[in-house]
Design a protein around this nucleic acid. Structure first.
Lengths: 351, 351
DNA sequence: TGGTCATCGGCAACCGGTTCCCATGGGCTG
DNA sequence: CAGCCCATGGGAACCGGTTGCCGATGACCA
């Protein structure tokens, strides 16, 4: 009744040893599997283990140096389709490589991010993966740099996934995808259809993801000798609601354009609804394109022309490169390619 | 050079103590915060901590009984919008209550699920939340029952979230949402528009989620004195592709119907695209309704009439009830309500 | 029958923390 | 000035495991 081990049912290796009539070391060795133990002893121990439904405490094993490694994953909001796919890739690859996977949503709050990274340092996580663009300020670089150093000094590794890279000598693994190139190809496709006034919609203006896509937008124009009207760049954030609101405002103001390139498919979805609400036909009256190729892009009406980003692969690569990195190997910096997916939402401009 | 603590930079509390010229206990107490320590000693210790960038090993703390509690979250695929929202709720609430949040995707494989639960038992997770419907077989009940017992004996708790409940005396917390009631209300709404042949589309036939929704479909018919044609029930799974395929097949076979109720919004999205491809107008020719109210439902064209399920709240409740449960409190079983969201995809049947 | 050796299992140290218990010393009071 | 008390910090046991090292036991062979 008062026996400690009976209280919660949580039994220790010594309880098992007592029941099997052996020492704790023997139990450990039976469970470990490699050390030679006689068949009789082994079966006595296994019986006790089964009867008590014993499982060794993973934290204690970790302290002793034989724990399950852990990997952490930080993002703003797991609800966004593209981030969810990255999360999927990360989680799959982590468990494939025998790692546990911790998640944290920051809601965009830098303090949460710092706190969580500190916790992961304490947890001795093998790697911490930071996901999603950010404003590339001096403060960002310094802060992130500090995280990288402190993680490195605790033996774990910082991975930036779709996030602005730091200076050349920071102990960081960076995996990016080509925002500028994708946007360039997409906008070139739109311009090739004869559109001349193309609205660029959404995305936080200081966010590197949006900036890269915007650069591609501008570069594609300039490659055709066009200089886009600054009034055609409209910033907000990456949500469906921002797309909806921005598009309504643009229509209300009577802004002239024949095509819209949205910063993300989510933004495009909101914009599409706003266009429909205004009685406009897509792509008859206005062409529309997105970015990310989220699964739903196919089911919008018309099916959305967009840029495919290999989000799942991005996540998988992030964990693979982070974990395979040896102490001597150089810090990696990968840039994944993207490609345009042509569907039905972009048509030739009317003469 | 050969000093152990210099090797990786991972410094222990004794290293800090040595540098500060105090004992390990004192460092522990300074960091702990409550025990009285003189200002001079404290600042010496804090300095050493800062200089070495020391963080106490969380696993060791856990072994000593003062660790950060952990909570685990198991789902089939984090990519689905509704599960992603639940995951969001779980993660938010977990970190709000100071818990770490472990994630595992099973890809529907029961063995992965079992393995992961075993790991969580070893990790001494405070709770393990199993998400998503399942086939309610005897094998399911026995297997889940065993998980519940073994988790309980290790001091943690099993939570079933949108999953078939077990017998009355299993040590389990169950949080469900009302599939039957929601489907009843939705189908009643469709029938009230004058539709008589309503196609029910998608959902694994032995899956309790689909079954509940199907029961609602049938009950709503019977409440109006109708007995639906069995040919109007078409099973598949919960994906967009299933919706697309099933709808195409139904159209190709020339099946007669004037409205479609899909098992989920994802299925509805696929079905909608198939209807559009067939040149049919929604809701002019065919009415369509979904289930789940995922964010994208608004941006389909026409905007999808559907049933709102409070997924995020479901996740939050799951962790809250699981963690607040005391040893004496009875096992809880919550059933959350749902409500129909009327948008534009259901119209009156043509006479 | 006795010696040698491989096999097997226990003791104790260790992983990195926390905390109980006690010794010391300084300040305050009588 | 002596005595008492309390603030402070150290030593050691403990959390629940693993593992190096060594001794005992039994088998096998000469």
């Amino acid at each position: 009744m008062t026996r400690k081990s009976e209280d919660v049912g949580r039994s220790t290796i010594r309880d098992v040893a007592a029941r099997a009539g052996v020492s704790a070391s023997t139990v450990s060795r039976v469970l470990g599997g490699v050390y030679p133990v006689s068949a009789a002893t082994r079966s006595r121990v296994m019986r006790a283990v089964r009867e008590m439904d014993y499982v060794a405490d993973a934290r204690a094993k970790a302290v002793a140096g034989v724990g399950t490694p852990t990997l952490a994953f930080v993002l703003e909001d797991i609800t966004g389709p593209s981030f969810a796919h990255m999360a999927y890739g990360v989680e799959r690859e982590a468990t494939r490589l025998g790692h546990l996977c911790l998640v944290c949503g920051t809601e965009g709050d830098v303090r949460h991010e710092l706190e969580f990274v500190e916790m992961m340092r304490a947890q001795r996580a093998a790697a911490v993966i930071l996901v999603g663009g950010a404003a590339d300020t001096a403060e960002y670089r310094e802060r992130t740099r500090r995280m990288a150093d402190s993680l490195a000094s605790a033996g774990s590794r910082l991975v930036l996934c779709g996030r602005p890279p730091l200076g050349p000598d920071a102990p960081v693994t960076v995996i990016e995808y080509d925002n500028e190139g994708g946007a360039y190809a997409l906008v070139a496709h739109v311009l090739a259809q004869g559109h001349e006034r193309v609205l660029f919609l959404g995305g936080k203006p200081d966010h590197t993801t949006a900036q890269g896509r915007e650069r591609g937008y501008l570069a594609a124009h300039r490659a055709r000798g066009l200089e886009p009207d600054p009034a055609l760049l409209r910033h907000g954030d990456f949500t469906r609601d921002a797309g909806h609101r921005l598009m309504r405002e643009a229509l209300k103001e009577g802004l002239e354009f024949t095509a819209v390139v949205a910063a993300t498919d989510m933004v495009a979805a909101g914009a599409l609804t706003a266009l429909h609400e205004a009685g406009l036909d897509v792509p008859g009256d206005v062409s529309l394109a997105g970015y990310d190729d989220i699964p739903f892009a196919r089911d919008l009406h018309p099916a959305l022309t967009t840029v495919h980003v290999p989000y799942e692969e991005l996540g998988r690569l992030a964990v693979r490169t982070a974990l395979s990195r040896t102490a001597e190997a150089p810090d990696e910096h990968l840039l994944l390619g993207t490609h345009v997916v042509v569907r039905d939402s972009v048509a030739a401009a009317r003469p």
